[in-house]
Simulated scan of single mutants.
Amino acid sequence: MNRRPLVIAAATVGVLATAAFALPNLPPNPVTDTIDRKVYKETGKRFASAADAPRRAEAAFALPAWIPKDATDVRIRVRNTGEARLIRFTLGATPLDGPQCSAGTPKPVAAPALHAKWWPDSLRTEGRPECRDAQQYQVAVRGKRVYAWTDGTPSPGAGPRGGAAAPRTQG
């Protein structure tokens, strides 16, 4: 009996299984970025500080206005097919002020199903509403680290498409 096809099949399965476990844990590179864009339909970006992030509201990785300008280690994960996003940053000298939702009653914001290694699973119960941007965010603070997420729900009183700011598109 010829075992060569069996050995080739077993080696192929081994390589694919190893890749399935290893690829999500690799640092960002062209292969993982392509998988994220094509398979998961999402993209991530990292900035050394909030000042390094785009300022135009239409930019895919623009930060909400309520994030302090001296925030550092900013990470953003966005859904390419909608408004869902995750944001993580570290507070600088400027503290994060209290929640701002004075224009109406905030709606529940679902945690988007985005894939980010830096995102803790247990934040849902810690979130508070933040409505000073076109989209309403949920925000959780753990020490100096701040986590914010949105599913694209417009802020109360912001109008049908999120008020004055244009919707964010992938560019």
Rank of each mutant, 00 (worst) to 15 (best):
P5Q: 13
L6H: 14
I8Q: 11
A9C: 09
V13E: 07
G14N: 10
V15D: 12
L16K: 08
L16Q: 11
A19I: 01
F21K: 08
F21R: 11
F21P: 02
L26A: 15
P28Q: 12
P28F: 10
N29D: 11
P30G: 07
V31P: 00
D33G: 08
D33Q: 10
I35T: 09
I35N: 03
K38D: 05
V39P: 13
Y40T: 09
Y40E: 11
K45V: 10
S49G: 11
D52E: 08
D52I: 12
A53G: 04
P54Y: 08
R55T: 13
A57G: 09
A57M: 10
E58S: 15
E58F: 04
E58D: 14
A59T: 04
A59H: 13
A60S: 13
A60H: 02
A62Y: 00
L63A: 02
L63K: 02
L63H: 00
P64E: 09
P64I: 03
P64T: 07
I67V: 15
P68E: 03
K69A: 15
K69V: 15
D70P: 00
D70S: 14
A71R: 03
A71Y: 00
T72F: 06
T72Q: 07
D73A: 12
D73V: 07
D73Q: 14
I76L: 14
R79E: 13
N80C: 12
N80G: 03
E83C: 00
L86Y: 08
R88H: 12
T90Q: 13
A93Y: 09
G98P: 00
C101A: 06
C101E: 04
C101Q: 06
S102K: 14
S102Y: 08
G104T: 05
P106S: 08
K107I: 05
P108G: 13
P112M: 06
A113S: 13
L114A: 01
H115E: 12
W118E: 04
W118F: 11
W118N: 02
W119C: 05
D121T: 13
S122H: 12
L123K: 09
T125P: 06
G127E: 00
R128V: 14
E130H: 10
R132T: 12
Q135S: 06
R142H: 06
R142M: 09
R142I: 07
R142Q: 12
G143I: 00
V146P: 05
Y147H: 01
T150I: 09
D151V: 06
D151Y: 03
P156Y: 00
G157W: 07
A158H: 04
G162Y: 05
G162H: 01
G162A: 08
